[in-house]
């Protein structure tokens, strides 16, 4: 017996909310992507905890897939950051407002 499942969930939600705040507040594109990473991690934590709770391996398998996909996603998004920097010479997110109505 380690800890109540509740505590794990609280930890995961704390991490998730920290990542969410990073995404909402930071203006640097890199920092926003870091926030996304944090959120993905928190989700992975919940999955591992659930697999421990039910003593099944599926949760862990999903986590490995999650990591694979995350790495793919990060590579593309960082390539896009490079491209955007080339276009606007800045990575301040306030500069990319062409969708303004």
């Amino acid at each position: 017996m380690i800890v109540p499942f509740q505590h794990l969930l609280i930890l995961a939600s704390l991490l998730f909310l920290l990542g969410l705040m990073a995404v909402l507040v930071r203006r640097n594109l890199i920092m926003i992507l870091i926030g996304v990473e944090v959120m993905l991690n928190a989700a992975g934590l919940v999955l591992v905890g659930a697999s421990a709770l039910w003593q099944q391996l599926d949760g862990q398998v999903i986590v490995i897939f999650l990591m694979a996909l995350t790495s793919a996603e990060v590579s593309i998004s960082l390539a896009m950051v490079v491209y955007l920097n080339r276009r606007k010479k800045t990575i301040d997110i306030r500069a990319f407002d062409e969708l303004r109505g």
């Binding site: 969410l20 995404v23 909402l24 507040v25 203006r27 997110i93 306030r94 990319f96 407002d97 062409e98 969708l99 303004r100 109505g101």
Partner: peptide
């Protein structure tokens, strides 16, 4: 209503939240 379409990405992300 047009004022809602600010073009600011953080604004749209706040919508998610």
């Amino acid at each position: 209503i047009r004022l809602l379409a600010t073009g600011q990405i953080s604004f749209y992300l706040q919508g998610f939240a």
